[in-house]
Design a protein around this nucleic acid. Structure first.
Lengths: 182, 182
DNA sequence: TTCCTCTTGTAGCGATTGCTACATTGATCT
DNA sequence: AGATCAATGTAGCAATCGCTACAAGAGGAA
C-alpha cells in the first residue's frame, strides 16, 4: 500500500504535465503512460480505471494551481480595485498561466457536462482563487470580500472573452464599469 | 451540387440536435450518422472529413443560437441596467438555454485549445449576443454600447461561476458592484 | 527454504475510431 | 438505347481505445 501510494504520487506530476500540454479531452492511457514513464497496464493497476485516474489527476492539478497562485502573490498590494483588476487580468493573460487557462476551460466544460471529478476540481480552484483574490484587495477597501467576488466575476468574464477573440469587447466593457480609469 | 448542398442542409439540423444533447467532445461519425438517419459513409461523402463536418456544424449552431436569441427578445425593455442584467442572467440559467450553455463551454474550451472552427463559432456567437444585448439595454441608458459590453462580461463571468458551482459567489459579487439593488 | 504478496511485462481481447475501395442504383443527357 | 454521373450500401482497413488474463520476478515472513 505504501509503495503503491508512493508510486501514484510519483506518477501524478508527470501526468499533470502531459495533460497541461495536451489537454484532458484527448488524453488516453497509452500516451499518458508514456509521458509518465510507465505502461497503460500500470496506470490501471495504480488507479483502478481511467475515470478515477482523471478524477485524482484533477484533484492534484487543483492543488498545484493553488500553489501556483501562492507563488504569484504580488510584493505590493494594489491601491485601487481597478489596479487590482488589471494586475490580475494581466497575470491571467500572461504566458505563464496560459497552460492553466487552456486546461481551465476544458475543466469548466467538463463541469457543465457533468463529467465525474470535474466540478469538484473547478469548485476547488475557484474557491482558492477567491481567497487569494481577497488577499490581493486594496488595504483600504471598504468591502474586500464582496469586492473580491465582484472582481472575480469580471475577471473570469474578461478571460473568457479574451479566449474567444473578444478581448477588445472586455476592454471596452471595463470602461463602462465603475472600474473605469478616471 | 444542388442535391449535395440540399442534403447537407438537411443533415445539419439533426446533427446539431445530437451534438446539443451529447456534446462535441465524444461525437464520432457513426453515432452522428445514426442520429441524422444516414451512415458514416455519407457524412464523409457530404462533408469531406470529420474536421470540416465539425466546422460546418459549429457554424450552423452559431446560426441557430442567433435565431434563438432573436426569439427570446423581451416584450418590454428593462428600466435599469440591473434589471437588464438579472433578466438575461435568468434567461441564461433557465432550462431552455441549458443545452446551449453546456455546449457553449465546450466551444470555449475548443477555442482555447485552438481546434479548427471553434474560435470562429465562438467569436460569432459572442458578437451576436453583444448586439442582441445592446438592443436590450434600457432606453435611457447613457452609453448602451459600453454598458452592453460591461454587462456581457459580468453575465458571462456569472454564468461560468454558476456552472462550476459558484452561483452564490457571483450573486454576492453583484452586490458589491454598481449594479447592486438599491 | 518455502510461501506469499506486491509489482511489473507481455500479449491480447473486443469495441470503436476515421476513412476508403468497390459495386450498385437511379436519374438525366445525348 | 447507351452513356454518364451523383448518390448510396456493403465491407473492410489499420489504428487506437480501455481493460484483462497470465506469468514472472522481487522481497519479506514463516
Amino acid at each position: 500500500m505504501t509503495n503503491a501510494s508512493l508510486s501514484r504520487e510519483t506518477l501524478l506530476p508527470k501526468l499533470a504535465a502531459h495533460v497541461l500540454e495536451h489537454g484532458l479531452g484527448g488524453a488516453s492511457l497509452r500516451p499518458l503512460a508514456k509521458a509518465a514513464g510507465t505502461s497503460d497496464r500500470m496506470l490501471i493497476y495504480h488507479f483502478g480505471n481511467k475515470e478515477t485516474l482523471i478524477s485524482d489527476l484533477l484533484e492534484y492539478i487543483a492543488g498545484i494551481y493553488s500553489a501556483a497562485l501562492d507563488m504569484a502573490l504580488g510584493e505590493t498590494r494594489p491601491a485601487t480595485r481597478q489596479e487590482c483588476f488589471e494586475r490580475i487580468l494581466a497575470l491571467g493573460r500572461g504566458p505563464a498561466m496560459q497552460p492553466f487557462m487552456v486546461l481551465w476551460w476544458e475543466i469548466v466544460a467538463g463541469s457543465a457536462r457533468g463529467l465525474p471529478g470535474y466540478k469538484e476540481a473547478a469548485e476547488q480552484m475557484m474557491a482558492k482563487q477567491l481567497v487569494w483574490l481577497e488577499g490581493q484587495m486594496p488595504e483600504d477597501d471598504p468591502d474586500p470580500a464582496g469586492g473580491a467576488r465582484y472582481l472575480l466575476t469580471l475577471i473570469e468574464g474578461s478571460l473568457m472573452l479574451t479566449v474567444v477573440g473578444h478581448a477588445q469587447t472586455a476592454r471596452e466593457g471595463l470602461l463602462a464599469s465603475d472600474l473605469a480609469p478616471s
